[in-house]
């Protein structure tokens, strides 16, 4: 029995590796035509012109990175606050329960619902703000997409960090209290240093989610295939351009370029994960 379980587990592990390799091979194979034609220049090419057959991924790479990191930046204070509330201040009780399930629920909402809500409620608000500032009131754009994304990724950081906060040994905290530290001082000097790697792990989990988010972003980013010149300008992301243009990409080179964008997104995710792991290792206690 023991052997059987071991074998099954091993098999599942290998199967996963094979699956991953299969995805990479398919992506590389599918993007061969585009790689041959544009080479590395594809990565910093600014032009995306399906009519003339010139393709470059830079506008989408820039759009993806800006929206993801901006979303991370915006969501961080909120997810930290929620985690501290649930993991330190109010570990038990009805309110904690409600808030906890509410944040978990945020993670369960389908992204198209976020997109729709963003388009119907959030975009008009942004438009009003833009009109006050005298900017062309698109409403949609990089900032709008980042804000929607930040709401979507809050539960990923907060639920992980909450768990990590609960893991801080109580003798450490009690010792600090014994020395006369206030609650804030305990958080600042004991809990946060102790949980640094856990917080970073939560952030990278959220970043991974933000990088690949498609539907909600597509609906509010404005879908302009050029490098955005301001936060209020419409732009586009890698996942979103694939979703938009895949169905009608009839020419080989066009299709292949879209697949190469998928490959690049994969590579970027791998790089982010790798850096994330390095950082987490360095700060882990």
């Amino acid at each position: 029995m023991d052997k059987g379980v071991k074998r099954i587990l091993k098999l599942t592990g290998y199967l996963f590796l094979i699956l991953l390799a299969g995805i990479v091979i398919t992506l590389v194979y599918g993007s061969a035509a585009s790689i041959r034609k544009f080479g590395l220049g594809f990565i910093w090419g600014k032009e995306w012109n399906p009519v003339s057959g010139h393709f470059g991924a830079l506008p989408f790479i820039v759009g993806t990175l800006i929206t993801s990191f901006l979303a991370l930046l915006i969501s961080f204070p909120f997810s930290m606050a929620i985690s501290l509330f649930l993991g330190e201040y109010f570990k038990k009780g009805l309110i904690a329960k409600i808030i906890e399930s509410a944040t978990d629920l945020l993670a369960g909402i389908p992204s198209v619902v976020y997109g729709f809500w963003g388009l119907m409620v959030f975009v008009p608000v942004m438009r009003k703000i833009e009109m006050k500032f005298g900017i062309l009131p698109y409403g949609v754009g990089i900032l709008t997409a980042s804000l929607i994304l930040s709401i979507m990724i809050i539960p990923y950081t907060s639920s992980l960090v909450t768990e990590v906060l609960k893991l801080v040994p109580s003798d450490l905290k009690e010792a600090a209290y014994g020395l006369g530290a206030t609650r804030f001082e305990v958080i600042k000097k004991v809990i946060l240093p102790y949980t640094k790697s856990g917080i970073l792990a939560g952030l990278f989990l959220a970043l991974g989610r933000a990088l690949g988010e498609t539907m909600a972003v597509t609906m509010v980013i404005g879908n302009r295939n050029a490098i955005p010149h301001s936060l209020f300008a419409p732009g586009n992301t890698m996942a979103s351009v694939i979703a938009n243009e895949f169905t009608e990409a009839t020419e080989n080179l066009y299709l292949s370029s879209l697949i190469e964008i998928g490959l690049l997104l994969f590579v970027i995710t791998v790089i982010v994960n790798y850096i994330g792991n390095k950082i987490i290792k360095r700060y882990s206690v």
Partner: peptide
Amino acid sequence: KSLKWPCGMGGKGNEGVAGVVKQI
């Protein structure tokens, strides 16, 4: 079927474009 647009913003599908025009 897809173009390099000189200006403006994109909506997904007829409903996307109609939505933008109705709102703005």
